Amino acid sequence: MAVDINDLAAFVSVARAGGFRDAARVSGVSASGLSAAVRRLESNLEVRLLNRTTRSVAPTEAGLRLIERLAPVLADMDAALDVLNGFRGRPAGTLKLNVPAGVARTLLPPIITSFLHAYPDIRVELIIEDSFVDVLAAGCDAGIRYDERLAQDMIAVPIGPRVQRLATAAAPSYLSARGRPEHPRELLDHACLRIQFASGALPVWEFERDGEVIRVDPTGPLLVRPGAAMDFVVDAAVAGLGIARLYEQTLRPYLDKGMLEPVLETWWQGFSGPFLYYAGHRHLPAPLRAFVDFIKASHAADTSPS
């Protein structure tokens, strides 16, 4: 049975992306080209591999079994081709990273910009996803998450600031009209702008000072889910709709310009910064190896004595 390896790769790409359009953006092959490849593969194998509806694409049971067997084979092929990077003057290829929206917005832009300037032959693909995923099963080289979301068998490399804070802030107009809370529990009497996880969970607001931890579940006029949520919440806070609670890096430009004012700053809770994580039991593709070395060098430079 003659099967084109490119058709197999197209099928895996579509199955992982959950659709032809998303797979086209990731793979660089047109959606129509991917569709034709999958149809050709199904015809050659005489079995349906994908269930297609107008809203979604998902592998059949046969498709799932094929993916299980193909994933390590395709990974080995990528590793074999990556050996050629050793014969080039500098690393080349694609680096696929799975990152949460908050990290993609506030932490990653300067890092990726500097990295791509240093390695112009590498192309970076960012998959923005807030839930924890198996990076290999998702077709990614590595991910970025916080330490409580890391799997035990992953190698974790610190990336970005090692201490971050969740900050609360409001517009001067809101504070003038509603007053400034002096204790976290007073937030229950204020309009608070909330962000809901994609899973539907609504995280409580947690504050800490001198070892005392206070958790509150305030309400307000706005509830948004991740993705564009942070921009929406910031805009709403600047417009005076209520109190926002986001990463300090997100709010800092607005605080510095006076568009927002800190609220309960002595209660802002700190936590450890994120990590770049990847599987330690496999060959590192040249783009990922270059990125890991770049992050380690940047971290060493930031922590070295001046």
Rank of each mutant, 00 (worst) to 15 (best):
F271M: 12
V135H: 00
M1G: 04
D141M: 00
C192L: 05
D153W: 13
N98E: 13
T219P: 03
N98F: 05
R165S: 11
L66D: 10
V124H: 08
V83H: 10
I295G: 04
E125D: 13
L108S: 07
L150V: 01
F20L: 05
E208R: 10
H299T: 10
S131C: 07
S114W: 09
G19D: 15
D7A: 01
I128V: 11
G160I: 06
A71W: 00
F11I: 07
D76Q: 08
L246Q: 00
A23S: 15
D134L: 04
H299V: 08
D121C: 04
L276C: 11
G86Y: 08
G200Q: 02
P172D: 05
S131Q: 14
L222F: 02
G200I: 04
A170S: 05
R123N: 13
E42V: 06
L97K: 13
A229F: 04
V163S: 03
A300Y: 14
E212K: 05
E265W: 10
I214E: 11
R194E: 00
T250K: 03
A169M: 09
S114F: 07
R194I: 00
E148P: 03
S131T: 10
R40W: 15
G139N: 09
R65E: 06
G220V: 00
A58M: 01
L255R: 07
D293Q: 11
A169P: 07
P158Y: 00
E265N: 10
F232H: 05
D189F: 01
R16D: 14
D22G: 12
H299S: 13
R25L: 15
L175R: 02
L222A: 03
T113V: 05
R145K: 10
D293T: 08
A279E: 14
E265H: 12
V83W: 13
W205M: 01
R55A: 11
A229Y: 01
G19R: 13
A290Y: 06
W268N: 02
L84H: 15
R16K: 15
Y278W: 15
P285V: 06
H283V: 12
G200T: 04
L66Y: 08
A2R: 14
G179M: 04
V216P: 06
Y277K: 12
T106K: 00
T94V: 06
G179V: 02
Q164F: 03
D235M: 07
L8M: 12
I112D: 08
L84W: 13
L288V: 07
F271P: 07
N51V: 01
N6R: 02
G273H: 12
S298G: 12
Y146H: 05
V213L: 05
M1V: 04
A36N: 15
D256T: 08
A229H: 01
V238K: 11
L166C: 07
P110H: 09
P172A: 03
R282E: 13
R39Y: 15
V292R: 10
G102H: 10
Q164I: 02
D4V: 11
P72V: 12
A201M: 13
P274D: 12
G18V: 08
D147N: 03
H117Q: 02
A237E: 03
E206K: 09
L288P: 11
S43D: 14
L108A: 06
P100V: 11
P91Y: 09
D76N: 05
F271V: 10
A24M: 12
L136K: 07
E46R: 13
A118I: 02
T303A: 07
L260H: 11
